[in-house]
């Protein structure tokens, strides 16, 4: 895949550093068409020299720092700060469905959550994703995920499973 991308870059006269190239691979999840679309969009918007940040901004992918900050708030167990975080997140306009995917990855990789909790949180994420596909409200679903993640990872008191 990267050879094809590099070929396009050469033909179009684009300048892509190796860091951006590997990011392009990961954000497009191996989808070549998507990778090329991102590349073209970034080239259109930001000119011939493309950095990592440009690619992130055209691709709907949420910056890792945002995901980590969100997870940290979830773990902290304070409801009001979590609520505020969710509100800000929605106001920033990030797509929630994309966020759930990234949150899932972050949780799987986290060291301080036990396997059982990970499984429970993943189940919750799956349910929320289905709801979003059905057209449910982003704010409420995200808040639900956030609060139950908190419950599950600190195991204070579980929200009743439906």
């Amino acid at each position: 895949m990267s050879s094809r991308i590099l070929y396009i870059c050469k033909e179009e006269g684009l300048n892509l550093d190796s860091e951006a190239l590997s990011t392009l691979g990961s954000i497009s999840q191996g989808d070549l068409r998507r990778a090329i679309t991102y590349l073209q969009s970034a080239a259109r918007l930001f000119g011939s020299s493309i950095s990592l940040k440009d690619l992130i901004s055209v691709s709907r992918v949420i910056p890792t720092e945002v995901v980590q900050a969100f997870l940290a708030t979830c773990k902290s167990g304070n409801f009001d700060s979590a609520n505020k975080e969710v509100n800000d997140f929605i106001a920033e306009g990030y797509p929630v469905s994309q966020f759930l995917t990234q949150l899932f990855e972050a949780i799987v990789e986290a060291d301080d959550i036990s396997d059982e909790q990970k499984a429970r949180i993943s189940k919750k994420l799956g349910e929320a994703d289905k709801c979003l596909v059905d057209g449910a409200d982003e704010y409420l679903q995200l808040l639900d995920v956030c609060t139950s993640t908190k419950c599950l990872s600190t195991s204070v008191r579980g929200v009743p499973t439906v």
Partner: peptide
């Protein structure tokens, strides 16, 4: 209670 109420709000909105 907040946690539980949030959950039900999401549930019924869906």
């Amino acid at each position: 209670l907040k946690l539980e109420v949030c959950h039900w709000a999401a549930y019924y909105e869906h």
